[in-house]
Design a protein around this nucleic acid. Structure first.
Lengths: 153, 153
DNA sequence: TTCACTGCAAATGCTTTGCAGCGCC
DNA sequence: GGCGCTGCAAAGCATTTGCAGTGAA
């Protein structure tokens, strides 16, 4: 609690993500980006690193962590936590801000948008005088498939 | 990712949790249970352990982890992951569902209700065929006091 | 040439586990 | 009296970070 919030990325939420923040295009960055495209599903840093090794591309583990965090900070990928508490990333299908509907059994994730919730969060924060606001919204449940399995049990 | 539930506990999912699985009533177990009642909200094991220490009850950190996992295995508490990937627990039967507006600087928390959000979450889940739904909503920002401090800086 | 990006390895911090003693049943 | 539960300390792991060399612009 004391080491607060920062929602995954160990970065100070400097309110403005610096627009002119250029990023050098390196072999490693391209490799990670390409891997995310190919995987097209949530992967942990460890998994992505293993994938790159098998593919023959060499990117050190530390660098994998750094690139993934960087991408997440820039909003280019989605960050979530799997059941083991590891951070998992996936290329954003939707570029805008959105939330997730997660199956607590199989891990399936559905992206959902919630303009109403965004507005609500902004209003509540304003009413209480809060600034530099961010929010997280996650819905957990059993997806249709897992619901059936449970019922059959 | 592939392995559901057990969330971190290196425990074999023995399919049937053995009905007669008796649990000895120890001072520590009672202390943890009482603490969960008093906190009545999601706490990480570390937080709960700190809380117990401040309260004067002595329960080792390792034991806190064991008891919390045990309770979770028996379905007596809810388990979730916070933004930092730590496991957070909460007593199941919650009276009065609500969310929080948190200051990321001083930790101040304001409880807020959001009937509109509850309804939205339920609807979204239903649309996607999800059952046994729960959700978490947290808003992070700088409280009025901390906003001023930042501005003055 | 400059300075961000990398790789390596050590460090960090949460969580788990082995082992011996204690206390609930 | 037996055996599960505790505490302590060491081990395990994912993730982060310091530092010096490399390469993109």
């Amino acid at each position: 609690m004391s080491q607060g919030a920062t929602a995954g990325s160990g970065r100070v939420p400097a309110s403005a993500p610096a627009p002119g923040r250029e990023q050098r295009v390196t072999k490693q960055r391209l490799a990670v980006s390409a891997a995310l495209d190919d995987l097209a599903d949530f992967v942990s840093t460890q998994e992505l690193h293993r994938f790159l090794q098998e593919r023959g591309t060499t990117v050190s583990l530390a660098t994998s962590y750094r690139i993934l965090q960087s991408l997440a900070d820039d909003g280019l990928v989605d960050v979530l936590r799997n059941a083991d508490g590891e951070a998992v990333y996936r290329r954003c299908a939707v570029t805008g801000h959105h939330h997730h509907l997660l199956c607590r059994n199989c891990g399936k994730a559905v992206e959902v948008e919630a303009p109403a919730v965004e507005a609500w969060a902004a209003r509540i924060a304003k009413e209480h005088g809060f600034s530099a606001v961010e929010h997280t919204v996650e819905i957990f449940g059993l997806c249709p498939d897992c619901t059936q399995l449970q019922a059959g049990h």
